[in-house]
C-alpha cells in the first residue's frame, strides 16, 4: 500500500504536488480574504478556455523533438494577420470569427513552413533560436502594423488614418462568441461551455492525429530520431508537419484568446505570450520531449490557478498587487526547473 502511494506521488511529481498544495492553501484563504471561491473558480475556468489552445500548440512540436516552442510569438502573428484582414475586409459579428480563422490558416501554413524549414537546418539548437525567431518576427511585424495599407477606421489610428491601433476592441465583432455559447452557472461557477468545447474539439483532433500512422511516426521522431530514421521515416518532413500543425493551432489559439479577452493586441504584446504557455505545459508534467493532452489540461489549469488566484488572495489580504511578479517568477521558475533536469539523451 505504502509502495503504491509512493508510486502515485512519484508519477505525479513532488513539485506538482507542492503547487497543488499551494493552490489549495490559497483557496482555503480565499474566504478569509473576502474572495468568493466561486468567483476565483470562474476566473480559472475562463482563463483556461482562453489559453488552452495556445498551450496545446506546444504538443506537436514537443512530440517531434523540436523542443519547447519558444517561437510561439511568430505563430501568433499568423492569427493576428487573420483577424486584422478579416476586419479590414468588412466582416462583422460572428462571421468575423470564422473569417479570421479561415484567413489565418494560409498564413499559418506559410509561416509554419518557413519556420519548420529553418528548424530543420538547426537541429539541436531549436529552443534558443526559436526564441529569437519569435522576437524578430514580432519586431518585424511591428513595422508591418505601421506600414501595411489597412484602411478600416475601426482598426486604424483615428488621427493619422494609417497604422493599426495597439489595442482593438472586438466588442462589436466576435466578443465571447464561444465563451458565451451555452454558458451556465454551476454552484456559482461560470462555465464558458462554447470555448471549452472548441478546445475539446481541437484537442480531440490532436489526440486522434497522434493515433494515426503519421502521428505515431511523429512521436517516434521525438522519442529517438535515429530509430525513426532507421525505420525509414523522413525526419525533416515529419518535423515540418509538426511545426505547421503547431503554428496553425497557435494561430487559431490567439483568435480564441481574443474572443474571450475582448481585445486584439498588436505590436509588442505577442512577446510575452510564449513563456506562460511553455510554463503551463511543463507544469502539467510534460518534459522537453514528451507531452500529452492531459499535460496540457492539467498544466493550464494549474498555471492559471496560480497566476489568477494567488495575486487576488494576497492582494486582498495585505493589499499588495503582485500578480505580475508572481507570474514572472512562477513561469520562468518552472521552465528553469525543466531545463536543468537531466534528460536522457537518445544518442550521444
Amino acid at each position: 500500500m505504502k509502495e503504491r502511494i509512493k508510486n502515485i506521488i512519484a508519477e505525479f511529481g513532488i513539485s506538482r504536488l507542492i503547487i497543488v498544495g499551494f493552490i489549495l492553501f490559497m483557496f482555503a484563504l480565499a474566504p478569509v480574504s473576502g474572495n468568493k471561491i466561486s468567483t476565483l473558480l470562474s476566473n480559472v475556468a475562463n482563463r483556461f478556455a482562453w489559453n488552452g489552445l495556445l498551450v496545446l500548440s506546444m504538443v506537436p512540436m514537443i512530440h517531434s523533438g523540436c523542443g519547447l516552442n519558444f517561437g510561439l510569438p511568430l505563430e501568433i502573428e499568423a492569427g493576428l494577420l487573420g483577424v486584422t484582414i478579416a476586419i479590414e475586409m468588412g466582416f462583422t459579428g460572428n462571421e468575423a470569427f470564422l473569417a479570421a480563422l479561415t484567413i489565418a490558416t494560409p498564413f499559418a501554413i506559410l509561416f509554419g513552413t518557413l519556420y519548420g524549414f529553418l528548424l530543420n537546418k538547426i537541429k539541436g539548437g531549436e529552443m534558443m533560436i526559436a526564441t529569437y525567431v519569435g522576437f524578430s518576427a514580432v519586431s518585424l511585424m511591428c513595422i508591418g502594423w505601421v506600414m501595411l495599407p489597412f484602411k478600416n477606421p475601426v482598426i486604424v489610428w483615428g488621427y493619422t488614418g494609417k497604422g493599426l491601433r495597439t489595442m482593438i476592441s472586438i466588442e462589436n465583432y466576435y466578443y465571447e462568441v464561444l465563451s458565451g455559447f451555452l454558458r451556465f452557472k454551476l454552484f456559482g461557477v461560470t462555465i464558458p461551455t462554447g470555448a471549452i468545447l472548441f478546445f475539446a474539439l481541437i484537442a480531440f483532433g490532436i489526440w486522434a492525429f497522434l493515433h494515426t500512422k503519421t502521428g505515431t511516426a511523429m512521436t517516434a521522431v521525438g522519442s529517438n530520431p535515429t530509430f525513426a530514421k532507421a525505420a525509414g521515416i523522413n525526419i525533416d518532413r515529419i518535423r515540418m508537419l509538426s511545426v505547421i500543425l503547431s503554428t496553425w493551432i497557435a494561430a487559431i489559439g490567439i483568435i480564441n484568446y481574443q474572443q474571450g479577452f475582448g481585445y486584439v493586441q498588436l505590436y509588442t504584446a505577442p512577446y510575452s505570450m510564449a513563456m506562460p504557455a511553455v510554463a503551463a505545459i511543463l507544469l502539467g508534467g510534460a518534459s522537453v520531449n514528451k507531452a500529452s493532452i492531459s499535460n496540457v489540461i492539467i498544466g493550464t489549469i494549474l498555471y492559471q490557478a496560480i497566476v489568477t488566484t494567488t495575486p487576488n488572495v494576497i492582494n486582498s489580504l495585505i493589499n499588495l498587487d503582485i500578480s505580475d511578479v508572481i507570474r514572472i517568477i512562477v513561469s520562468n521558475g518552472v521552465i528553469l526547473f525543466a531545463l536543468t533536469r537531466k534528460i536522457e539523451e537518445p544518442k550521444k
Binding site: M128, T131, M275, I329, N332
Partner: peptide, 12 residues
Amino acid sequence: VTSYIISFFMNG
C-alpha cells in the same frame, strides 16, 4: 537558453 530563462526568472 538556460541563462536566458535565468535572466527572466531573476527579473521576477
